[in-house]
Each structure stands twice: as C-alpha cells, then as structure tokens.
Design a protein around this nucleic acid. Structure first.
Lengths: 222, 222
DNA sequence: ATCTCTTATGACTACGAGTCATTAAACAAT
DNA sequence: ATTGTTTAATGACTCGTAGTCATAAGAGAT
C-alpha cells in the first residue's frame, strides 16, 4: 500500500515539476513562443514523457491557469467572509483583484488569455474547474451586492447578478489592457496604477446607493 | 502610363480578392483553424502567390481587421459631428459601438482578437493604421467628454481622456464577452442584448453630471 | 521573333505538435 | 539472486502548416 502511495506522490511531484517548468517558460516568453521540446528540456525529461502527464499543450496551459484561478478565488472568498457592509465587501473584492493582478501579473495575464478566442474549443477537467471557480467568484460578488442592497449601501435598481458581472468584467478589462490601450495610456502619460486607482473613483457612482439624492436627475433612460 | 495604371488596379483587385477569401474563411472557422493553403484554394491561387501580396498570415489577418477598424471609426466620426450635447454624443457613440458589434460581429470579434496576447509582437503597416484609428476614436470620445463638461451634462471631476478610455475599454469588454462569461449569462438566463442595454443604465451614473445632487454622498474615496 | 520584366507556381525546408514501438527501471514472485 | 511483470520514459517518427525559392509562364517592349 505504502509503495503505491509513494508512487502516487512521485507522480504528482513529476506533474508539478512539469507545470513549474512550463510556467517559467510561458511566463517569460508567452505560450505561443514556447515549444513542448523546450519545456521537456527545462524539466529534464523527453517530450514524449510530457504527454504521459498532460493530454496536450493546452492541457498543460490550463493547469497553470488553474493555479492562478485558485489564488484569485481564495482572495474573493476572504473578502466575502469579512464582517462589513455590502458596499465595502465589493470595494474589498475590487481591491483583491488589484492585488492579484499586481502580485501575480503572469497568472493574471494567462487567466485572461485563457478566455480568448484562441482557447474557445478547449474542454478539459482543469478548464471545467476554472469555469467553476469563475462562477463561484461571480456568486460571491452577487451576494455582496444583495447584502449591499439590503443594508442600503448599494443601488437597488439593477439585478445584483448583472451588476456583479459588470463589475467583474469591466475590472478585469481595465487591469489587463491590451497593448493598444497601453500605448494610448503611455502617450497620455498616465501611469497604469494611477489609471486603475482612478477607475474605482469612476465606477463608484454606478454602484453606490444614491437614488434619493439623485432622483431629480433620473438616469434610468441612459 | 495607362498600362501601368491598369496593372496597379489589377494588383489591388487581387489583393482585395485574397482578403475577401481569407475573411470568409476566418469568419466562419477562426484564424487559427484556417491554413494559408485553404485560403489559396478559396481564391484560386497558389499558396506562394499569397506571399507576394502579404508578408505573412498575420499581415493578412490585420488587413481584415483594418477593414473593421475603419468602419468603427467612421461611426465614431459620424457621432462626433452631431450637433447635440456632450452627454448625448457619448450616448450616440455608445450606441455606435453596439451597432457595430451587432452589424459586423465578425469584424468586431477579430478586432478584439487582434488586441490579444496572440498578436502582441506584430508590427506591420496595417497594425499601425489600426492603432492610429483607435487613437482617433479615443480622441473623439475625449472631445465629447470635454464638451459635456463644458455644457454641464457630464461629471467634471475626472480627466476626460481617462473617462474616454474607461468607457471605450469597458464597453468593448461588455460587448465581446469571453466564452466563460457568456456561459455565466446563459446559466442566469440573461439575454445578451438585454445585458448590453442594461450596461448603459449601469454605467450612466459614472458619466452623467450629478455632483450637486450627489454632494452629500461623496464617492471620491471609493 | 526575341528579349525582359513581372507574376505565378508548387516542390521544398523548417519546425513544432502529438504518437508509438522500443527500452529501461522498478517491483513482485519464487 | 533470478526471472517475470508492470509501469515509466524515450526519441525517432508522422503529420500538418508557415514560409521560401528556383523555375515557368506570360505580358509587354524592341
């Protein structure tokens, strides 16, 4: 029994070693510019061996993305457990995404890339788990919106799930700018961290409760 | 002279024919699932000939994306010339993006894809023109924000260029959802057109002027 | 009729993903 | 220890595709 256990552990370690090697190379040179042969060299195995552990290159990629997705989900869960108002939970989650994108920029980039057209056909276990984690994040944010609606800190005229989606999607797109927008920012001499900070100030009024003060200037038909 | 002219015209026509063929195939099956050989067959030329007209597959891709970028820019320009308030220009531009994404979904998709990590290394004349058009769109929207600040229809506590970027980036990301978000929408039984419409209602308060009514509930430290 | 210059061709190279028959190594049984 | 069996690893192989290039075809000039 112990031998089978050890073999199991060794197998998992090999798998981790392969992911580590691939991660190192993908992070530094990008998924499309790294060959399986190079990953094999990095981890000191033959190319064929990689395929004993991963169905194909995409599966290896998604194993890495999954690591990132787990980190992000852990942050969201943390925020959701705080004993604060709904609005503040949402703020905390926003801060969480920023921390993630700055603390793990490569995971963040790959998480975004994994959602691009390039990978729209993939269907493996890790991709399913990533989807699952994504859905859980949305739910956590939806719950924060629902709480905020109850405690009066968040506007209550839009479906909380929709708001959660808006906030997730827009936040991610602001933090993972494509090269064209980055160039535009640079040309305008706007620092990227500053840009992200200002976004919180920009998006605030779309979230916060201000119906009463705002009633005279109804925005419902924008 | 006339002969050289005719040859020039023929050459341009060939180029268009090739772009047409590639477009047809890319639209229906995606850039990564179409080979140069197939494009050559579609346009009834040999593969080698394609390379007389386009440096590589990416250059051909960007020629298609450029078509889309020009259409979108035309829409923005149109909106910018309207004689209406700044806020309404911004609304018109928002509507313009929606029209573009619904009227030319394939150009829209490819325009988004061209900004992904997949193509971050490309550097050809068409890519430069696309960048140029993108910058012009941002400027048009910035001008609308500036006008709106002057005429009092738009909030004036954030840099207009930044606001233009926020609105462009977030709008595009909402309209070109990656598969994971699409699944989440479907699971929640939210229609995608509805989702886009509601976004306008969601984002409104972040744009519209409501400082006076809102002063008691300052949002500046979100 | 011949020459020249442009355009087109398809066989060819290079490269990378993924496969598979073979080998090596670990473990089990005697 | 010896032999057999199962599992893990290998690298040579196939296959598909991007991109090249020597060669051919053809249009226009002389």
């Amino acid at each position: 029994m112990s031998i089978a256990d050890r073999k199991e552990r060794e197998k998992e370690q090999r798998q981790r070693d392969i992911i580590d090697a691939a991660e190192k190379l993908f992070f530094s040179r990008g998924y499309d510019n790294v060959s399986m042969e190079e990953i094999a060299e990095e981890v000191e195995l033959s190319k064929g061996t990689l395929y004993l552990y991963f169905k194909d290159k995409e599966a290896l990629f998604f194993a890495i993305v999954l690591r990132g997705a787990r980190i992000l989900n852990a942050k969201y869960s943390e925020c959701s457990r705080l004993k604060i108002t709904g609005l503040n939970k949402i703020r905390a989650m926003g801060h969480g995404i920023i921390e993630f994108s700055q603390g793990y920029p490569n995971y963040f980039r790959m998480l975004s890339y994994s959602g691009s057209e390039r990978f729209c056909n993939v269907d493996n276990d890790d991709a399913k788990e990533i989807l699952e984690l994504t859905n859980r994040n949305i739910s956590l944010m939806r719950e924060a919106f629902e709480q905020g609606m109850k405690d009066g800190t968040v506007r209550d005229d839009i479906n909380p799930l929709e708001m959660a989606l808006y906030l997730c999607i827009t936040s991610l797109s602001i933090m993972n700018l494509d090269p064209r927008w980055k160039k535009a920012l640079k040309a305008a001499e706007i620092n990227q961290d500053r840009f992200i900070e200002d976004f919180r100030r920009f998006i605030g009024p779309s979230i916060e409760s201000s119906r009463k003060a705002n009633a005279a200037f109804s925005t419902s038909d924008m």
